[in-house]
Design a protein around this nucleic acid. Structure first.
Lengths: 149, 149
DNA sequence: CTGCAAAGATTGTATATGCAAATATCGGCG
DNA sequence: CGCCGATATTTGCATATACAATCTTTGCAG
């Protein structure tokens, strides 16, 4: 009978969810960023453009809740994308609010980026396995359920 | 028969692996960072300490290959952790090399962090489902196979 | 109507991350 | 020995990310 005793280091190295998630995140992000590089956009920004496109009128706090992004992070990302003409602020009666929307420029960028995205998506699937899409999807659903309660 | 036509935006929003992976990564990272905050260490750093602990003599390029981290990223992370006394450089005949190792301080930190890590791990499992560990593990294995070829 | 707590967003600061360029060293070839 | 390409790492620069603090506006209580 060999001993089962594990050191702290071995346990963390072998089981830590964050270690794995973060590593895969780096790899996946790099795949998409590579594909999108010719278009001058990163996948982090594309995420926000897509969210804005879906929402129509995008309120920062609401976008952050959906994407689990800190509001300060969003604030600066939006700033960069306004500068590039992909997003624009919508006037609002409430002086505190700064809702924004996708511009036509932004919409055009997404259309142009679609082939690169498809290529990256295919590469990611090939690398991680087709199941990964569903698996991540299920985790996201659990997350949303947890948020609701 | 309803139409199946989807806009680019809907397709990306609904299927993108990067969107999901990045969102889950933010959530998971926050769970671990929250738990580790009292110890003054972040999960990104803990990953590197653990890797160094397992390797004994850690060569930057080798660590980066294992963790899929850019060498410049590691360089600066190591710098911060050397300053905190958790890592130290090992002398080497090759003047280009800067191998490092976990110090006793660093080892002690990991031991102290173990309970916080366990708590975070439990939270992450509860949130995403027990299966997530295996699923991510399998993706990591596929990744390693891809690297080898 | 005035003051004040709450709401919504931005700014200050620090870490993480990656690409490109620079630096330093090594090894071999004349 | 001296130059040169290869190797190992660090630096310059830009973006992403989050926490804490600040700023502005709103809405309400008195």
């Amino acid at each position: 009978m060999t001993k089962k005793r594990q050191t702290t280091i071995d346990t963390i190295a072998g089981e830590c969810i964050a270690v794995r998630m973060r590593m895969l995140n780096r790899v996946v992000t790099n795949i998409y960023d590579d594909a999108l590089r010719p278009l001058g956009v990163k996948v982090s920004q594309m995420n926000i453009l897509v969210a804005a496109g879906k929402m129509g009128t995008a309120r920062p706090a609401e976008v952050c809740e959906r994407l689990h992004l800190d509001v300060s992070t969003l604030s600066r990302n939006v700033e960069r994308m306004k500068a590039r003409g992909w997003l624009e602020v919508i006037p609002d009666e409430d002086g505190r609010a700064q809702p924004f929307r996708l511009t036509n420029e932004g919409r055009k960028l997404l259309e142009q980026a679609a082939p690169a995205w498809k290529k990256a998506q295919k590469r990611a699937k090939a690398l991680l396995g087709d199941e990964i899409v569903d698996l991540l999807g299920q985790a996201v659903i659990r997350l949303r359920e947890a948020d609701a309660s």
